[in-house]
Structure formats: C-alpha cells, structure tokens
C-alpha cells in the first residue's frame, strides 16, 4: 500500500457524563479498591463513538485510511470527561505488484 494523498487531520470526540446508577457500585468499590468495571465499559463505549465520528469525518473527505490515530482524554467537570480521537486522513492505493 502507498499513500497517494494527504487530507489533513480528522477528529471525533464525545463528552461523557457518568451515570448515577453506575456510581452506586463505584462508591462501594471505592472502599476496598480494585477495578471499576462499569467505568471501564462506559469509557470504552464513548471512545468507540469518538472513533466512529472520526471515521465518518474521514469518509466525508473521501479518505480510505486514517494514519497515526491517537486518543486523548480530559476531565471537564466533576463527573464528565471528553474523549477525543484524532489522526491523519489519507487515501491509500494498492501497489501495482509485478
């Protein structure tokens, strides 16, 4: 494969607020420590959504690949986080193999 055209940075982000019900379990877990499963899942779901948004932006530009994808997470207020995915949209072509 070979990059034939660069289309610039594409990104997708979601802002996720926590869920009160998931929080009840987390509060209990905070006594004894350990993994907060519900939070892991919650963040994974919204990260997936960010990826999809980034992909549709790339698609709208006519790209068929995104290179060097990165994630970034920031806490906005207590109980809300922004999950950002970004990368470089490109058009790749298969090599003519001889």
């Amino acid at each position: 494969m070979r990059v034939v055209q660069h289309l610039g940075v594409v990104q997708g982000s979601t802002v996720q607020a926590k869920n009160v019900f998931r929080d009840i379990g987390a509060a209990l877990k905070n006594l004894v420590g350990g993994e907060l499963r519900s939070y892991t899942d919650l963040l994974n779901e919204s990260r997936q959504a960010s990826l999809e948004r980034m992909q549709s932006e790339a698609q709208a530009l006519g790209a068929n690949a995104i290179l060097n994808v990165r994630f970034s997470t920031s806490t906005i207020t207590q109980g809300a986080a922004e999950l950002l995915a970004y990368g470089t949209a490109v058009i790749v072509e298969d090599d003519a193999r001889g």
Binding site: L31, G34, E35, R37, T40, L43, F71
Partner: peptide, 11 residues
Amino acid sequence: VAGSAVISVDY
C-alpha cells in the same frame, strides 16, 4: 487494538 482499565484505590 486497544485495552483499558479503571482502577480505584481503597479507603
């Protein structure tokens, strides 16, 4: 591929 985990401290 990606993997993640949220870990909390104890009291």
